[in-house]
Design a protein around this nucleic acid. Sequence first.
DNA 1: TACATTTGTATCGCACACGATATAATCTTA
DNA 2: TAAGATTATATCGTGTGCGATACAAATGTA
Lengths: 152, 152
Amino acid sequence: MKNNFSVLYLENQLCFPLYAASRLTTKIYAPYLKALDITYPQYLVLLILWQHQIQSVSEIGEQLLLESNTLTPLLKRLEAKKIIVRKRSKTDERTVMVSLTPSGEKMKEKAQTIPTQIMGSFQGEEISESELLNFQKTLKKLVHILGSKSNQ
Amino acid sequence: MKNNFSVLYLENQLCFPLYAASRLTTKIYAPYLKALDITYPQYLVLLILWQHQIQSVSEIGEQLLLESNTLTPLLKRLEAKKIIVRKRSKTDERTVMVSLTPSGEKMKEKAQTIPTQIMGSFQGEEISESELLNFQKTLKKLVHILGSKSNQ
DNA sequence: TACATTTGTATCGCACACGATATAATCTTA
DNA sequence: TAAGATTATATCGTGTGCGATACAAATGTA
């Protein structure tokens, strides 16, 4: 029988494992990304640009659930490293368009091997592929629900 | 059979959603925690102290997967708010023991309603309880696997 | 018992996150 | 079309995370 405070135990909560898993995942990426001299959030921005070539700050923000208060400094750091270019739109002076430099474009090749290596870290005897797929499905739902709850 | 596409897909559908879910969860907690004038990581420390009364910095770190570089400043902020007390151990001058003040002890009552309120806001969502339990189970396994991979 | 090693915290610097606020450009509408 | 509202970025301040390093206390060992 659960007492009233059992809900306050760390292991009974959903949020702590999410927080831990997120940080541990970032740590797994770190050595691979360090070879490219980028961080995990910077890698996420590059994933978008490798796919879409050019995006506004807010378009990037919509996909990563981040806003300009986080993105502007991050993008300036990527620009300082000559990986991207930031340029005000001619048609709407408010928006800043972000695109890759040749150097940033070239990084795509090197980055291509990362996902396979990372997914290896998620492999373990305890988790089957089908379990991982189920997990990913619920996780996606959860993000969707949390996303709608957090901005209302 | 796993091709490059499925690996890429899984990476993007697993690592980024973990990162997003963690941040969104913290955002959901924020208004409840603001009423107690604490942050989410500070709340995690209090969860441990409400259960164990007194813990060393490294014991807290083992449970939260954090080290003194993160914990020391965080604990100092909690001490400044008169929620906890930090005291060097008599038997081993290296270790710092952390415990609750009466004020910090009292916060347990108020905090008890938080998990229930948050879980309640998920009523009627398209995730069943059994799906959530399965999810939680895989998540814990994942944290275990990632934890062992990240510190080697 | 000296001396090297390990352990537990602390400090430093950098890069996020994010609420709050500012600012300029664009859009709405009276 | 002038004035108010909205939109897109940027800035600021605070609080994490975390790798690297420092340092003193405790432990191990010759």
